[in-house]
Design a protein around this nucleic acid. Structure first.
Lengths: 195, 195
DNA sequence: AATAAGACCGACTGATCGGTCTGTATAAAT
DNA sequence: ATTTATACAGACCGATCAGTCGGTCTTATT
């Protein structure tokens, strides 16, 4: 039987992975703790050994998805790349790391716990940190004169909304097809559709 | 007291409006029938007099939002407009009619009832009809040689995803600000951000 | 005036939810 | 070898959910 510390950490991660898929697919409220247990192959008691509450699990999971996703970015993108190259690279990266997007579940979560609650503040902080990193990427493109515009924050918001909205459409696609769609979408954004 | 047929229709519409706001803001599962009643100012019994179930209410509401929104489009857009002008016009129209988007609640709804259930089929049919109309608009732009590309379906999917994803960001904005953001986003899509 | 039909209310029901608590088996510490 | 701490399991609880039902009041019909 698995009861060692390493095994426990593995069990915890199994729960997180299962919960992430379910939250992304069904939303926050529509996903029950019992479903998560069932998908992760553990009991409800076991789950509550690792997480204090549903909110706690969601925030832990969001932090891992949003914050940790940036930690590997520096290995993926090199400074030598142009901002445009980086944006293409990020589009792929988005599909890889956030294919199951938590945006929808996140908004539902916020509306449920309230933006001023402790849980709401923590989640919004995580989200803000994520967007800040992306805004840096956009700022690079503007500073280097590669892209038009002067408002990095607004542009970052638009592009992230773009990618987020597009993720709805790739749920039924393979990862390869999804990346192709994101590449095309990025190309459209860069070059425009107007003749 | 309001008990006549006209009053009943008004009561029903009040329920629909309240439900639409709540579903859009909180999601499908997270919105309770009691909350809808409270917002609409009627009792739970009264609500179930007008709608057989929660699913029934949601489908009715989705039909009204998606299908009916196109019915007034022909009055808004004239054939004389270029496709580009029509797209700008549609961006405004999108903010006006679908500012509270049901996309998220809709996906949650689908995952809950299943895409093959009767309710799921009905909802997907409504959604498909909506997208088809938008695809026609895109096809016009391609046919007239205004826009680059050859795949109207893919382009329509991308643009609608674009607008849908952006709607998350305008929840806290006024309608005027929202329209400005959509106008800017449409301009970016048309002209591209690359120098 | 009497009757029928529609509009609406609110108490009730069974199921399900998030969360707690007790118990047990294993691993680590002594 | 014994104790302690950790990692679970599953029965259980109060709250809340969607949906039902019997009754009341008003309008429409005859």
């Amino acid at each position: 039987m698995k009861k060692s510390k390493d095994d426990a950490e593995l069990t915890k991660q199994t729960i997180v992975d299962a919960a992430k898929d379910l939250f992304a697919a069904k939303g926050y409220a529509a996903t029950s703790m019992a479903e998560i247990c069932s998908a992760a192959g553990c009991s409800r008691g076991g789950l509550y050994h690792h997480f204090d509450s549903k909110e706690d699990l969601f925030i832990f999971l969001a932090d891992q998805s949003f914050t940790v996703s940036w930690e590997n970015w520096d290995e993926v993108a090199e400074d030598s790349m142009t901002a445009t190259e980086q944006l293409y690279r990020y589009a792929e990266y988005f599909v890889d790391t956030l294919q199951k997007p938590l945006n929808k579940a996140g908004e539902e979560f916020i509306s449920r716990v309230g933006p001023d609650s402790e849980a709401g503040q923590r989640f919004l902080g995580i989200l803000h940190g994520y967007m800040q990193r992306f805004q840096n990427l956009v700022q690079t493109g503007l500073d280097r004169g590669e892209w038009k515009g002067d408002n990095a924050q607004e542009l970052a918001m638009i592009i992230l909304g773009y990618y987020s909205g597009l993720s709805d459409s790739i749920q039924m696609m393979s990862k390869t097809e999804g990346k192709q769609l994101y590449r095309k979408a990025t190309m459209l954004l860069l070059e425009g559709i107007q003749k």
